[in-house]
Design a protein around this nucleic acid. Sequence first.
DNA 1: TCTTCATGGGAACCATTTTA
DNA 2: TAAAATGGTTCCCATGAAGA
Length: 247
Amino acid sequence: MTPTARPVDVGSGRPTTDLPLLLADLHLAHLPGDVVGIRLDPVPDVGWTLERAGDLLVGAGFVPDTVSWWDTARVEAVATRIRSLPDTVAPDIRLLVVGLNPSPTSSDTAIGYCRGGNRFWPAVLEAGLASVDRDPRHALHRHGLGMTDLVRRTTSRADEVDSGEYRAGAERVERLVAWLRPRAVCFVGLGGWRTVVDRQAIAGVQDRTFGGRPVYLMPHTSGLNAHSRLTDLVEHLREAGRLANRG
DNA sequence: TCTTCATGGGAACCATTTTA
DNA sequence: TAAAATGGTTCCCATGAAGA
């Protein structure tokens, strides 16, 4: 497979921690199926490796075909833009929200939990973790609320994702957490955490950490989850926020 | 005739419980 | 440990009524 144009330079002279949002912008500038040549040219730091470069591409909604060193600091990759939702992450995150995988609506709008019946944004606003509805970047920059998913592949149903995909995705997200060190991590959806970490887990603060950071587990916010009311979800998010304040 | 709105039924969804 | 069954809310679409 060959890229459609000459490589796009991303992050020249910028810290590696700027790459997630820069790659998200690149994702939004392309269509699903586009094969893109990408040259990552940040100011290298001690953790700048091919694995991290690959993780960043995956997190931004690309499937890397090749990832290699262009020279001693720059990474060149060829990647396919998939129908997905890029990570909204940066340094100094207060609370990183980890979902299961993007819904078609979220991928098409580039806004996580965007679907009308999803209670995520109403609950986040009510809990005081964000102040602008359905604006992930405002939530990130103003409130330190980051967002990612275990699996980047878009499906209309969470049960279309198998356990192997969850585990592989969890390894990537754990590396992301260890790198960016948010004050706390909030897993949305019991199934993902139970698949990859603790089958017996219940909602609340978890015994074990994830990437070295404390974890709060809460039920899925989809309107199709009949077991959780909006008031319950608000309280879960407030608890997650309190955990982040202690972190 | 066209548009808007309300309604109803079936399908979809996910956490929990039960069963194998 | 995994798969199947369950329960109840929400979504989606078709249909019909009302108004312009």
